[in-house]
């Protein structure tokens, strides 16, 4: 079933939530996805369990990366005509600022959607999208339809 609404050609927040519920690790992290104008806004809620540096405190860089990868995967799924779980090929992550103990947001740009391979850029921020905490890009392999 396509996530995209046939009339407005965009996914619904309810359909995004259903996809997240299929992913145990996304539920474990409490990741949320909602429509925000024409974009999908992803949220990693503030949680002390995500601390990687207790002295600052700052969130674990790995959990920021995991959140961004999950955001990218769901962003890609939401843009598929026949949604399937894509396979990550590689992931490259630049850390720009330490992430503090508060909500973290992510938005994605589907730079290229090929028949087999897609490229997605991801930005994660906390206070201001113009001062991102991390930017990343991911390549995904889309399974062939049988």
């Amino acid at each position: 079933m396509a996530l995209k609404d046939s009339v407005h050609n965009r996914p619904s927040s309810a359909a995004l939530a259903l996809w997240l519920q299929k992913v145990p690790y996304a539920m474990f992290l409490g990741i949320k996805a909602e429509l925000c104008e024409t974009d999908i806004l992803f949220t990693l809620p503030e949680d002390k369990r995500f601390i990687g540096n207790p002295s600052l405190p700052a969130l674990h860089g790995g959990v920021i990366g995991a959140f961004m990868e999950q955001a990218a995967a769901l962003h890609l799924i939401a843009n598929m005509d026949n949604p399937t779980l894509p396979k990550i090929i590689n992931f490259s992550l630049d850390y720009l600022r330490p992430a503090r103990l508060r909500d973290t947001y992510a938005k994605c740009l589907l730079s290229r959607q090929g028949r087999f391979i897609s490229h997605i850029s991801i930005t994660a921020w906390q206070e201001n999208i113009d001062q991102p905490n991390a930017i990343a890009r991911a390549h995904f392999l889309t399974p062939e339809h049988k």
Binding site: V23, P24, Y25, A26, G62, G65, E69, Q70, I88
Partner: peptide
């Protein structure tokens, strides 16, 4: 787990 049908770990877990 990332793929609940296959029971395989989420790629993000490897990132951590």
């Amino acid at each position: 787990v990332g793929d609940s049908d296959a029971g395989t770990l989420h790629g993000g877990v490897l990132t951590v």
